[in-house]
Nucleic acid binder design. Structure first.
Lengths: 343, 343
DNA sequence: CGACAGCCTGGAACCGGTTCCAGCGTGTTC
DNA sequence: GAACACGCTGGAACCGGTTCCAGGCTGTCG
């Protein structure tokens, strides 16, 4: 292994000078700078990351914590984080919590020690547990798809996305829109619900909370049908895909009988038939922005809201003249509580 | 920041003893061991990773290089790598080459310096460039979905997967099977082609090479139709999904008129309609196994082939009595060269 | 009762860089 | 021509751990 001492010896200068030359510091003559560069090149010198980290205190690494790497939503964010980090000469240490809230604190503190900054994507931790943890991380932290007063964050203009979706469905003649919600503990589900309440309080039918997966959508579809909804707005694309699949299986035509709108614009959304109308969210950009926020600590913390855009595809159409009748043989389960209107 | 010196002072022992106590080394009295543990606990001591790495030469980190984090295939492998690394007390440094061969060498050498071992998933680099690079990594390397004599690897029993798919289609009465191939430079496409040639030389119709994406499948579907194929075996699930979508768009019924088989069993495969019959590949397990191979260097290197399993869903059915006629108005493009039979 | 073995212990060297500081040489200015 | 400023240089301290080595203590055996 070749160290800086070797480079210094070959270049005929002291260790200190070699170090300065390598890091483009001032107080090095052009001749020596050249000598050192040449020696380093010929020896194939590569600085030892740990040694550098020990003295400078900076590791050249950013951490990323996501609930599930295999979820296309997080994968897209991860890609953005990775790309931006590489552009700025840093590496990414990634941790997958497997959707388990209990491991989040461990992972955050462990990673916190090893990185220059930490990006937390959609942490599931409740606000009161998150706050103290951010301090314990011991370095800059930026959140994605979650907001808290204690740290900078980048999230999406969910209210505007909900408005665009609602405007679109109303323009198509859907007077009442059913909402297939995500987990109650989800910050972004809360944002959607708040927006729905503010924008269209008494014309939104709450189908309840579902797991943010294909299965959750399947479940929601039956409730939507039972309630006689002509349009379903979904927590995310996976849920929307589940709704689509279930409607198809039950012989309900989309978009002729029921329109479906998703959220996120995951890759699969445009590949399915009918192609999904959905609120596109700049996931990779969010990842990139989060990395940039790590560098720019400010007080009060910076909260970015990235713009979103409704992408109209083939899963939405004008409301049918006579909406599907609620199936008289079915009843809506209590837990879904579809009578409750969001305010 | 609290260092081991602080712990030693509080515990009333020397730095050396404190170090030994913390790392469960021998030659420490039970009393001192207890004192040190207590002091470390009360001070909230956490060892400095860079300092440890500097002396021991081990970083407690494994590297992972993938072509595209957002591709569900690689995401699943990454999840496996991450899980196994965490179980063994290590972290994962991940790099996404964005499908660009040119950046692979850079990424590999850069990451190689910072990790105890490197997992390379589906490197696109040609064999003659890969070999030297593995040495340059300067530590143990394990490959996933790629084999080379120079390093241990974990791949899949592709030949058996191809056999299962072929047996299935033949049992359904498909005499000739079209193959929608992946990139010529892909090692695993080569494996599929070799298996096809060995198993069914003159009953396989080569549709050509396509980008391993939905778009590639769309492209392949038209060629399959033009050639009058009743069954299409695809390089991977994304291609199969594209084929399915295009057949649907052109009014061809699946599986009644044409059967489609994918490869990998990505999550989307089971969510689409008709659900995709595909060769399921243990992606996460491959990731875990690769991490284990890093620890167990052996000569000659260990090459694991994980078993695969055909999952029969709804995209395959008995061959139609009278196959779809090749559309007389279309001709098969030259580049696809469907006349060429794999041997 | 003395010698020897063996377990603990702490001082010090070391890992590979970065950076402070003192010293040297040159150029500039009264 | 002397004093001063400034740029370059290398010796040495330092970052926070790990580990070698010498020495002290206790226990056992002859």
């Amino acid at each position: 292994m070749v160290t800086l001492r070797d480079v210094a010896r070959v270049a005929g200068v002291s260790l200190a000078t070699a170090s300065r030359a390598m890091s483009d510091a001032p107080h090095v003559s052009a001749a020596n700078r050249e000598q050192v560069a040449r020696a380093a090149e010929s020896l194939g010198y590569r600085p030892h990351p740990a040694a550098r980290a020990l003295t400078t205190g900076s590791t050249g690494t950013v951490g990323l914590v996501v609930p599930d790497l295999a979820n296309p939503f997080f994968a897209a964010v991860a890609k953005g984080v990775q790309a931006r980090a590489r552009e700025t000469g840093r590496d990414v240490l990634v941790a997958d919590t497997d959707e388990d809230v209990a491991v989040e604190p461990d992972v955050i503190t462990r990673l916190g020690d090893r990185v220059d900054g930490l990006v937390l994507c959609s942490p599931r931790l409740p606000a009161d547990a998150l706050g103290p943890l951010l301090a314990a991380a011991g370095g800059p932290v930026a959140l994605v798809n979650r907001e808290t007063p204690d740290a900078p964050s980048v999230s999406f203009d969910i209210a505007d996305g909900v408005r665009q979706a609602l405007d679109h469905l109303r323009a198509l003649g859907h007077d009442v829109v059913a909402y297939a919600g995500g987990p109650r503990t989800s910050w972004s589900d809360g944002e959607r619900r708040t927006a729905l309440g503010a924008l269209a309080g008494d014309t939104v039918l709450d189908l309840g909370s579902f797991r943010p997966t294909h299965g959750g959508g399947v479940q929601a579809a039956d409730l939507a049908l039972a309630a006689g909804a002509t349009a379903v707005l979904c927590f995310n694309d996976l849920v929307a895909l589940g709704v689509l699949a279930r409607l198809h299986a039950r012989g309900v035509a989309t978009p002729a009988d029921v329109s479906v709108v998703g959220f996120d614009d995951v890759a699969a959304a445009s590949l399915v038939t009918p192609a999904l109308t959905t609120v596109a969210v700049p996931l990779a950009r969010a990842g990139r922005t989060a990395v940039d926020l790590l560098g720019a600590a400010s007080a009060p913390p910076d909260h970015r809201r990235l713009p979103v855009e409704l992408v109209v595809r083939s899963s939405t159409a004008p409301a049918p003249p006579t909406p599907v009748q609620p199936d008289p043989r079915t009843t809506v389960p209590r837990t879904a509580d579809p009578e409750v209107v969001i305010r």
